[in-house]
Design a protein around this nucleic acid. Structure first.
Lengths: 344, 344
DNA sequence: CAAGACTATGTAAGCGCTTACATTACTCAG
DNA sequence: CTGAGTAATGTAAGCGCTTACATAGTCTTG
């Protein structure tokens, strides 16, 4: 007769535990555990007895107890600035789907709405085995470094630094191709709208714009600084309409900028692409609904999220961090805002 | 001299524990715990000694141990079908922000990519104190009922049933107002495009369309069944162009449907709203970029997510489930696709 | 100075699950 | 029938943290 344990039914009043299941099924707690973990050394009749007891008692195991015993949380953390715009949503979908395949829970932290980002990240670290962090200026590099000293970390859309691994979509070559496409339409006063200092991705898009100019022996302009928001796009368009900038093409750091600029110019009577070609980045849904359709670059965002989850899992399993960023290819999506004719 | 405990440094080789921090600071583990939990009965000098030890050892507490000791996971679960489209992303942002304010982690499950939804939900239940589930036909009512027997549950955009609490945005009255607006433009062959059996929200939008007709002594048509996707919108538009349907207005179950229909018709030379008015639901970003701007209804999605997180917290705290659905107001957004003139 | 009250800290038990090693049960071969 | 090998199950220790109650230290009052 087994010695009475504190968590057995008599010592507890709410919710079934492994002790009450064992008691109900007439087996030991080890057998209950083996059944629930899918061990093959349990007789079929015994297994059925346990599963029946689980069903009848409505037993929900306490995941925390398991995590403590196996010394793994079996969860990945994901830190994003926010979820506005389809990029982050797609990234999260890819991440969550792959984490699920790897039997890891996903614990999410969105930093833009947090008053104490460091505390949020610190708290997250107590509950997960590894953390993926979006590589953006909104999340300080110091915080990422501090985190890396405590948990395996993968930076998404960032650059490797100080033993911190990174995964990203390729930006520079597709930006070079996109800007080249615009220049090959004969445009000679193309402006880059966006802030290269806001993150590695925008930096690489600007570098691609520069490279396309160099390729053709052309001089490139300084970037027109703007955040990746509708408001900054509208403000820029209004300055363009007021004559503060001159351009026959705009290469915008992302689609949201491009779309707000384009619509503002059109509403003021400007012809796109007749007066000015406009291209973006990300191939958001709206890009294909507006007229003319926006020429842009599609990133494999879903796959990027999945790759990040993969790498976290491998780091937790003991692999050393890779010293180079893993790059996924991007793809030019040519519509009509660049000056190409509609396909009829 | 305290008795040696197994998790102390000598018994463990990786990662600091509360025992190594206590040893390093020269205090008991209770004192370390008190400091980290912010207890006020600790002397300032002692508190500093502990914080210094924590810093020097890079101590990351194991959240699972705390959860087990306090018998709460301090986490909310959220089950959504997916994250495509801004509705879900906005909902999740509201949920996560409020959960953070309530000191709860968020564990996310997206069911569309899962091969065994029941197992995913069961696994989630082992790791959270309560779960919010999106009320959609994609997540079976049986599963929600089963879950409710084990954990506090709130259904988002659903109806209360069997002691399961629900939170939703109001649909029927705004749909009545929207359809009424279209009918007051003189339209007499308005079609509803969407599937009322796909969930309570679409049902209520159709009911509002019916009510608006009744209000004016008009007969309403049967709904044209379509899923909330671009593909179904395009297919419907093509059937309309081929003459299988006749209408002078379309009330679409959501913006994605409305947008794909509208763009397909326009590309085929139809005039919106001249030949046919089109209205949607959700006020997605694209709604304001297309021309004419889409008339639609805005839902307080962010607030809905926050409310769900609030209610989970209250249920965990012992409040009984509410027997009525909590409704948040929606708001008509009139642009020009309905036939209203642009504001100049 | 002694007693009582208050503050600060420590000891020990326990939360619920996992699993190494021990024990029991069953089967097969000689 | 007996012994060896294998399958099935049980016992006990432990994962890392929290906290009730016990103990020690300090201060104030009579």
């Amino acid at each position: 007769m087994a010695k009475q344990h504190p968590a057995s039914p008599e010592a507890r009043s709410a919710g079934a535990t492994i002790y009450s299941v064992a008691d109900h099924a007439g087996v030991s707690i080890a057998t209950v555990s083996r059944v629930l973990q899918g061990a093959t050394v349990v007789a079929e009749a015994t297994r059925q007895k346990v599963l029946t007891a689980v069903e009848e008692l409505g037993y929900v195991p306490t995941g925390a107890a398991r995590s403590l015993a196996v010394r793994h949380h079996e969860a990945h953390g994901l830190v994003l600035p926010e979820l506005s715009g389809p990029y982050y949503a797609e990234l999260l979908m890819g991440f969550e789907a792959r984490a699920a395949e790897l039997a890891q829970s996903v614990v999410l932290v969105l930093t833009n709405s947090r008053t104490d980002m460091a505390a949020a990240v610190r708290q997250l670290a107590t509950r997960v085995d590894a953390i993926a962090v979006f590589g953006s200026a909104a999340i300080p590099a110091d915080l990422v470094r501090l985190l890396r000293a405590k948990k395996p970390v993968v930076v998404i859309a960032g650059e490797p630094q100080d033993g911190i691994e990174a995964v990203a979509a390729e930006n520079l070559e597709s930006a070079r191709e996109l800007a080249g496409h615009v220049l090959d339409h004969g445009r000679r006063r193309a402006l880059f709208v966006g802030d290269p200092d806001s993150g590695p991705d925008i930096r690489n898009r600007y570098d691609g714009y520069l490279a396309a100019h160099r390729d053709r022996g052309l001089d490139a302009a300084e970037p027109v600084l703007a955040r990746l928001s509708e408001a900054d796009g509208t403000a820029f368009a209004q300055r363009l309409l007021a004559g503060e900038h001159e351009a026959d093409a705009l290469m915008c750091a992302n689609d949201e900028l491009a779309l707000s600029i384009m619509t503002t110019l059109q509403d003021a009577g400007r012809d796109v692409p007749g007066d000015i070609a406009i291209v973006g980045w990300d191939d958001v849904m709206t890009a294909r609904y507006v007229r003319p359709g926006l020429t842009t670059v599609r990133q494999p965002v879903h796959e990027l999220g999945a790759l990040a989850a993969d790498r976290l899992h491998e780091l937790v399993g003991g692999e050393p961090p890779r010293t180079y960023a893993q790059m996924l290819p991007t793809r030019l999506v040519v519509r009509t805002s660049c000056g190409c004719l509609p396909v009829t």
